[in-house]
Computed example of a mutant assay.
Amino acid sequence: MPARLAGKTALVTGATSNIGRAIAVAFAAEGAHVVVSGRDAERGAAVLDEIRSAGGRADFAPADLDGSARAGRELAAAAGGLLGGRIDILVNNAGIYPAASTLDTDEETFDRVYAVNVKAPFFLTAAVVPGMIAAGGGAIVNLGSWIARLGVPTGGLYSSSKGAVETLTRAWAAEFGPRGIRVNAISPGVVHTPAPAGQVLPGAFMMNGTPAGTVGPPGAVAHAAVYLACDEAAFVHGTVLDVDGGRVGVAVIAG
């Protein structure tokens, strides 16, 4: 079976750990030339080693996506240079998650969360889209969250920021779809890299009462990202794909 992303180029933000790393590795395994972006060069080098040792193509572009339009333009330019002047796929994955309650959230934290989780993907997308249009099209995959649609007692700030990302996904699908750019999102449940035996992963209890009954692996989200980025999803626009073990849509009632 031919690689589903052969000949494509991709920029993945927040790609030095967990979901972002899994997406970058999966894209490269499917034939894409990937730019791994993040703040930590050492962790970025580890991702490059993993991809290259498997025969894939990848480069690292350091970036602190602070929400400024300048940071978005600089990353788009750096990634474009590494990818031969063309970005076919953009994955807006980078984000931060403070778990504080509303009453414990100060204004500085509020502004930081919206800068990283909403402004950064907004301005990075704005910087990448013109090149996609000039090249005849592209695909954008945003990362939302299950708590954007299922309220929990803490994390209201984070969940509202991810709700904004999911709304932007639909708005961008309408804005850019007619110009050849498909925009979709993934809404993960609680996802972690595997933990040593006996170690309880943060947030694992949130998956109690779901069909999956446990946290998900980053690779599950990566598989969904590959699908949304490749030609198999050519007729998919503006959707939010739940990869959450059934958290939002299903309740398992114990007898």
Rank of each mutant, 00 (worst) to 15 (best):
R52W: 04
F27I: 08
A32G: 12
M206N: 10
A32N: 14
A126V: 12
G84Y: 10
K8M: 14
G238I: 12
V116C: 11
G44H: 13
V47C: 13
I253K: 15
M132E: 06
A46F: 12
L65V: 14
L150D: 04
V12S: 03
G138Q: 13
P2V: 14
V113A: 07
V12F: 07
A173S: 06
L143D: 04
V113N: 05
G203A: 03
A28Q: 01
L103S: 08
V221W: 01
P130E: 04
L157R: 11
E74T: 13
G55K: 12
I140Q: 05
F235C: 09
L75T: 09
T193A: 15
Y97H: 05
A71S: 14
P188T: 15
V128C: 04
A76I: 05
L48N: 03
T169L: 05
A94K: 07
V191H: 01
L168G: 03
A100N: 10
E108R: 14
A46W: 12
L241Y: 00
W146E: 13
S160P: 00
G72V: 08
W146L: 09
V128I: 13
A148R: 10
P188S: 14
E166Q: 09
R43L: 14
T214A: 04
Y97M: 10
C230S: 08
V221E: 06
R170C: 09
G31D: 15
I186G: 02
A222G: 11
G180I: 09
R43M: 13
G151S: 14
L83A: 09
A94D: 03
P178E: 06
T239W: 00
G209F: 01
L82N: 05
R39I: 10
G56V: 09
G144W: 00
T214H: 07
G180R: 07
V35N: 12
S17R: 14
A24H: 01
G56K: 07
E74L: 09
P218D: 11
I96C: 08
A126W: 08
L124H: 01
A173P: 02
D111Y: 00
S37W: 03
A29T: 11
L83C: 08
I89Q: 04
I87T: 09
A212G: 02
D111M: 06
L241S: 08
G177P: 07
G20V: 05
T193D: 15
G84L: 15
I51W: 00
P153I: 06
G219D: 12
S101I: 02
V221G: 02
G180T: 14
V236F: 00
V165Q: 06
F60Q: 03
S101G: 12
A71P: 05
R170F: 08
K162R: 11
S161V: 12
S101K: 15
G238M: 09
R247C: 03
H223P: 00
V141E: 07
C230Y: 03
G38A: 15
S159T: 09
A197E: 07
F176M: 13
A135V: 14
A134N: 01
A26I: 06
G156S: 13
